[in-house]
Amino acid sequence: MKVSQFIISFITLALVIPFSNAYDPSPLQDFCVAVGNLNNGVFVNGKFCKDTKQAKADDFFFSGLNHAGNTDNDVKSNVTTVNVDQIPGLNTMGISLVRIDYAPYGQNPPHTHPRATEILVLIEGTLYVGFVSSNQDNNRLFAKILHPGDVFVFPIGMVHFQVNIGKTPAVAFAGLSSQNAGVITIANTVFGSKPPIYPEVLAQAFQLDVNVVKDLEAKFPSKN
């Protein structure tokens, strides 16, 4: 009897634990508007929440995504982020939004979002987009050329990119499955870490001459 009870308990735990760890707990209130003031606040998902009776429409509002971002930079693109820092009412909702502007031949360079899957829709222009799967999947490239109205998905954690291959500006909007998806730009992270990674380490990892690595590291520190 004890053996059968143990087996049943084990199977129950095996079934329940994966599901209990798969998602954030469901909110037990309508919303949890983030505030910076610690007084009388409840700490949820990295933010303190105001009394729900004090919430107002502006807590769920952002204006300005109709304006193009400044693409006068090295990569010729600009990401306008609308996450919990811009809309406090997004706290605990598990969703955010970005607008991406690309100058002709500009790019959103290879990067990852550690906490979110991204779904992108192209509004104007022509983009070459893609992501690379993990080592376990032999680092396969999944890529497409997008035209206005096309949609592409970048799975959570995968290195991905977008490049404007047209002669005119491009505009895209993307939704992310996190209130604060995070971003790790590969080149900035690897070659612009503070303090720098030893050049000899990166030279061996990337199969580059150590002087090439030193030159790359000299280009990035001020951008982190």
Rank of each mutant, 00 (worst) to 15 (best):
V3E: 15
S4R: 14
Q5G: 01
F6D: 15
I7P: 02
F10H: 11
L13V: 10
A14M: 13
L15I: 12
S20A: 15
A22L: 14
D24C: 03
S26T: 10
C32M: 12
V33M: 03
N40W: 00
F43H: 07
N45T: 03
G46P: 06
F48G: 00
K50A: 03
Q54W: 00
D59N: 04
L65I: 00
L65A: 08
A68P: 01
G69C: 08
G69D: 05
N70Y: 06
N73R: 10
D74F: 13
D74N: 12
K76C: 04
T80I: 10
T81S: 14
V82L: 04
N83K: 08
Q86W: 00
N91D: 01
V98K: 03
V98P: 03
I100L: 08
A103C: 07
A103P: 03
P104N: 10
Y105R: 11
Y105T: 11
Q107P: 01
H111S: 03
P114M: 05
A116G: 05
E124R: 15
V129E: 04
K144W: 06
K144V: 12
P148D: 06
F154Q: 04
F154R: 04
I156E: 11
G157R: 02
H160V: 05
H160W: 08
F161Q: 04
V163E: 03
V163M: 09
I165Y: 02
I165M: 02
T168D: 14
P169V: 13
A174G: 15
G175K: 00
G175V: 10
L176M: 15
S177T: 15
S178T: 12
Q179W: 00
N180G: 11
A181H: 04
G182P: 07
I184F: 03
I186G: 08
I186N: 08
A187L: 05
N188K: 04
V190R: 06
F191M: 06
F191Q: 01
S193T: 11
K194P: 01
Y198P: 09
Y198L: 11
P199F: 12
A205D: 12
A205R: 07
F206I: 05
L208W: 15
L208K: 10
D209L: 05
N211F: 03
D215R: 14
D215E: 14
A218W: 07
A218T: 02
P221Q: 11
P221D: 11
